[in-house]
């Protein structure tokens, strides 16, 4: 079994996802290799776009004035964003591998990393919307992309992790549960931080 995945895998994952998953099911890549050759570059995209967009135009949360921040605080926010995305990717891959024993799936951590990277890739590319920092444009682009990514998750797990589709469906649903909880925790934590005085000024 090869330990390499070819360099075009990510690109192909965008237009021939099933084919890419099949290719993934034939390899056993090293997690570090996946991380530094693919995941990291993708994960950097959203914070980078956001940094460029926000420093040039400021965030528009609605019809009102754009919200402008100093370059210093923008850098901090982008770094935080990067860390959150990295944490999200790695933790999801780890949890997915942990679940794999329950569902009888392949337990190569590298493969789980690669799978999550492929699933998340459309979102990373769609984050180009951050260049136009209007919340609504971003929501409009990112929500359909997210539904597409969920579709990829459901389709990808059984192929890439070599389990029957029915079992893959169960595993994917469990992972969706985790992702939803993670997303809402992030929302809750940021709200609590804002209330406590980090971030935009609030009159509470």
């Amino acid at each position: 079994m090869s330990s390499k995945i070819d360099s075009y895998l990510l690109i192909r994952a965008l237009y021939q996802p099933l084919n890419a998953f099949e290719q993934l099911s034939r390899v056993d890549p090293s997690p570090a290799g996946v991380m530094f050759r693919y995941s990291l570059w993708l994960v950097i995209l959203p914070p980078l776009f956001s940094l460029i967009g926000a420093s040039n135009f400021g965030w528009r949360l609605g019809a009102a004035e754009p919200l402008r921040m100093t370059l210093g605080s923008l850098l901090i926010v982008s770094a935080g964003y990067l860390l959150v995305l990295l944490f999200g990717l790695v933790s999801t891959a780890i949890i997915s591998r942990w679940m794999a024993t329950t569902y009888g799936a392949n337990t190569s951590i590298g493969r789980h990393m690669a799978l999550m990277t492929i699933v998340g890739a459309p979102l990373a590319f769609a984050s180009v919307a951050h260049l136009f920092p209007d919340v609504f444009i971003n929501v409009l682009v990112l929500i359909p992309t997210m539904i597409w990514s969920m579709y990829l998750l459901y389709k990808g797990i059984p192929i890439a992790l070599e389990i029957p589709p029915e079992r893959g469906m169960l595993m994917a649903s469990s992972l969706v549960g985790w992702l939803l909880v993670a997303a809402v925790s992030l929302l809750g934590i940021s709200m609590a931080l804002w209330t406590m005085g980090f971030g935009p000024l609030l009159g509470v």
Partner: peptide, 21 residues
């Protein structure tokens, strides 16, 4: 999965510093 989300989100939103927003 959504039951898991809703029953997590609910307690979180009941925390005063989240609820205030």
């Amino acid at each position: 999965a959504f039951y898991g989300l809703a029953t997590f989100e609910g307690p979180m939103m009941s925390i005063r510093s989240v609820n205030v927003i």
